[in-house]
């Protein structure tokens, strides 16, 4: 049996089972470029399927990466029929919530007047972790839509996540929510009828019913996120100590959540040995340092797909550049034969 692991993401790109692909890592290591690249390669290799790339990072970059504007609703990438993008906007979602509350309470009374000024959005916007919660709500909404057959049906959703801390909070949400709902369910079971009468016969809110629905949705997500055939996490890092340190922390946390993680993309590598144009003292010294950490990565993550990606001469922006760059995720980058590409990208802009 061959136990060697390929140094590319071909298995993931051609995977027909994965529904959720998370891409995460420390800030500034190329998460957005990597997630766009994965999404593009998946979409190209499986043209009959629909893919959705969601940015859950409050500081969105998808629009910049593709060079076109995306919003809170999924929109197809120009030039690709089966890839859509969306950027979850917490402030817009909070404003929607506020407007709904205003509509329910009406105006004229004290609460309605207060909400008219966006008080709910202001208050909830300052809650720690609200961005992650809203991203999570988006995932739930997406699953519900898929089940009900509403809107566009996506076979795989790729998440361009926020830096590590935010992402871990996001991934912890199903577990936390599940525990919270379990406790709340116990309390509501005892006081359910009383709660229902408090919240109003007028509005006919069935708290228990809503709780059970939310609980079953959360359980479904938890189950899907921990199924390695459905969900995987791709770590992105650069060959530097702090980035590796955070990657290790991320991997250990993900393992503790029972999430599948077996791919690491190492970005911004100089490959100075094989590139005649990178021969400055500084570049050679930096490549030496990168090689030192690459050796450590190979030793530590020998059973992972470790994809080594080059530092390009220019910014990797626009679909054309992304397509050129992303193919190395599928085939792997060979510094001896492929180094021309990193200068070609520069020429195109």
């Amino acid at each position: 049996m061959d136990l060697t692991v390929e140094a590319n993401l071909h298995d993931l790109i051609t995977s027909t089972t994965h529904k959720w692909v998370f891409v995460g890592g420390k800030g500034g290591v190329g998460k957005t470029t990597s997630s766009c690249s994965i999404a593009i390669q998946m979409a190209l290799s499986q043209p009959t399927k629909q893919f959705l790339l969601i940015s859950t990072d409050p500081a969105h970059n998808l629009s910049d990466a593709f060079g076109e504007k995306f919003g809170k609703d999924a929109r197809k990438v120009t030039g690709m029929d089966n890839l859509s993008c969306m950027e979850i906007d917490p402030s817009a979602a909070l404003k929607d919530m506020n407007d709904m509350a205003v509509a329910q309470n009406g105006s004229g009374d004290g609460l309605g007047d207060l909400l008219q000024g966006g008080a709910l959005a202001d208050i909830t916007g300052s809650i720690p972790g609200i961005d992650e919660a809203l991203s999570f709500m988006e995932v739930m909404k997406h699953i519900k839509k898929q089940e009900e057959g509403e809107g566009e049906k996506y076979d795989t959703v790729i998440f361009d996540t926020a830096p590590t801390g935010h992402t871990l909070r996001f991934l912890q949400l199903p577990q936390t929510l599940s525990q919270l709902l379990e406790k709340f369910g116990e309390i509501a079971g005892r006081f359910g009828p009383m709660l229902n009468s408090f919240t109003g016969g007028a509005q006919n809110m069935d708290i228990m019913g809503k709780l059970n629905e939310l609980k079953s949705n959360v359980e479904k997500i938890k189950q899907q996120f921990t199924d390695p055939d459905l969900t995987t996490f791709v770590c992105v890092c650069i060959s530097e100590f702090l980035s590796l340190y955070e990657t290790e922390r991320l991997i250990q946390e993900l393992v503790s959540y029972d999430m599948d993680v077996n791919s690491i993309i190492v970005n911004q590598l100089l490959f100075a040995d094989d590139d005649p144009e990178v021969q400055s003292r500084r570049s050679i010294a930096r490549w030496k340092m990168q090689k030192k950490y690459l050796d450590q990565i190979d030793e530590l993550y020998e059973d992972f797909h470790v994809v080594k990606m080059p530092l390009c001469a220019g910014e990797i922006r626009g679909l054309k550049n992304l397509k050129m760059f992303s193919k190395f995720l599928d085939t792997g980058y060979d510094p001896k034969t492929d180094y021309d590409v990193i200068y070609e990208l520069e020429e195109q802009d």
């Binding site: 100590f241 590796l244 340190y245 290790e248 250990q252 950490y293 050796d295 450590q296 030793e299 530590l300």
Partner: peptide, 17 residues
Amino acid sequence: SAQDEYAKWTKLNRQIA
């Protein structure tokens, strides 16, 4: 040193965990 021998340091860290 974690920076000089990162792999060894991390393996020890995993064992400690």
